[in-house]
């Protein structure tokens, strides 16, 4: 018997296991946000997951294949159905528009296994959630997870208006004492300074929402003396559209033009080359790629690389970052 040495293999790509699903329900919540529910095609149950996990949804939009991460907002213990809620982004590359406009009940799609980059710190004596807009979605699952074990939590949720307050009614009906809602159009805002003052030792703070809100909450917590280890945030960047550019992949010997509405990672995948990834949002570090040669300007948009790595021009995160120039050669 001669087989490859089982202990001499280099780490392989560890991309998520894919799950084929059918869209089982589409529920518009308001003008901007729609919930999509999925069932498995193979009849098996979905894996359970932990609150805060996301799934990467693959979308075949004509010739373009997009893969966008969305927080799972269904009950983590529920294995019949997965649900995501998607906010329509009219300025984005079209992933949310595709879901809103082209996907219908009965359509087949592909999801990744759940991955959690925003999990609860289970040591917490209390979980304090701050959500803005569509940032409510990971908390929907975390609240269900905590409720199953009688966890101690409190939510402060800021929305533009009652009309755009996704899940406000459900949350208030079930958890009147733990949920606090703030409407921008009624000039209501979270009194953060007071909120952060007086929380019992061992409280963990979680924030998910627009970048401005995340920065505000993190900054306020730091100046109120909260340790970094007690403050958690989820900030996935959606890849932004940009000027097309050409890239050559040295290892594979292939070249490709990255389209205006396509990410560099998606273009690489279009060639059949599959860098590992978890988040596709500039946070997890998996798709980090060495640059072998370049002539032009990098448009780094990730949270992963250090500043000196960004300025050195020898690394790029192809999930969210772009390039503007003549020559770009990657070690892929």
């Amino acid at each position: 018997m001669t087989a490859p040495a089982p202990n001499s293999t280099a780490p392989k790509s560890i991309g998520a296991e894919k799950i084929k699903v059918i869209v089982s329900a589409i529920v518009p919540l308001n003008n901007l946000v729609t919930r999509f529910e999925f069932k498995r095609i193979d009849g098996y149950q979905f894996p359970t997951f932990s609150g805060g996990a996301h799934t990467v949804v693959e979308m075949q939009d004509g010739d373009l294949k997009r893969s966008n991460p969305y927080s799972l907002m269904s009950d983590p213990a529920e294995t019949e159905t997965y649900a995501i809620s998607v906010r329509r982004d009219d300025q984005g590359r079209g992933g949310s528009l595709f879901l809103h406009q082209k996907v219908q009940v009965g359509a087949t799609m592909t999801l990744s296994s759940p991955v959690n980059l925003f999990s609860l710190d289970l040591r917490a004596r209390k979980h304090l959630f701050v959500a803005g807009g569509i940032g409510i979605t990971p908390f929907m699952a975390q609240i269900k997870q905590l409720d199953a074990v009688h966890g101690n939590w409190e939510l402060h949720y800021s929305c533009r208006s009652p009309e755009l307050g996704s899940y406000v009614d459900e949350l208030c009906a079930k958890h009147a004492h733990s949920v606090n809602i703030y409407y921008d159009d009624k000039k209501q805002s979270i009194d953060l300074e007071n909120l952060l003052d007086g929380q019992p030792i061992g409280t963990h703070l979680y924030v998910c929402g627009p970048k401005g809100m995340i920065d505000w909450v993190r900054r306020s917590a730091a100046s109120a003396g909260w340790p970094d280890a007690h403050v958690h945030h989820e900030e996935f960047l959606a890849p932004q559209p940009g000027k097309p550019f050409a890239v050559r992949l040295a290892k594979s010997g292939l070249s490709v033009e990255v389209g205006e509405h396509e990410s560099l990672l998606e273009a690489i995948e279009r060639l059949g080359v599959e860098p590992p990834y978890l988040c596709r949002g500039g946070a997890c570090g998996q798709c980090e790629t060495d640059v072998l040669e370049s002539e032009g300007i990098f448009i780094h948009r990730d949270h992963w690389l250090e500043d000196d790595e960004k300025s050195s021009g020898i690394k790029i995160m192809p999930c969210v970052s772009r390039f503007d120039g003549k020559i770009l050669v990657l070690d892929r």
Partner: peptide, 10 residues
């Protein structure tokens, strides 16, 4: 002292 301390304690 620790039992009723609140966040923001250094």
């Amino acid at each position: 002292v620790l039992s009723d301390a609140v966040m923001g304690l250094q």
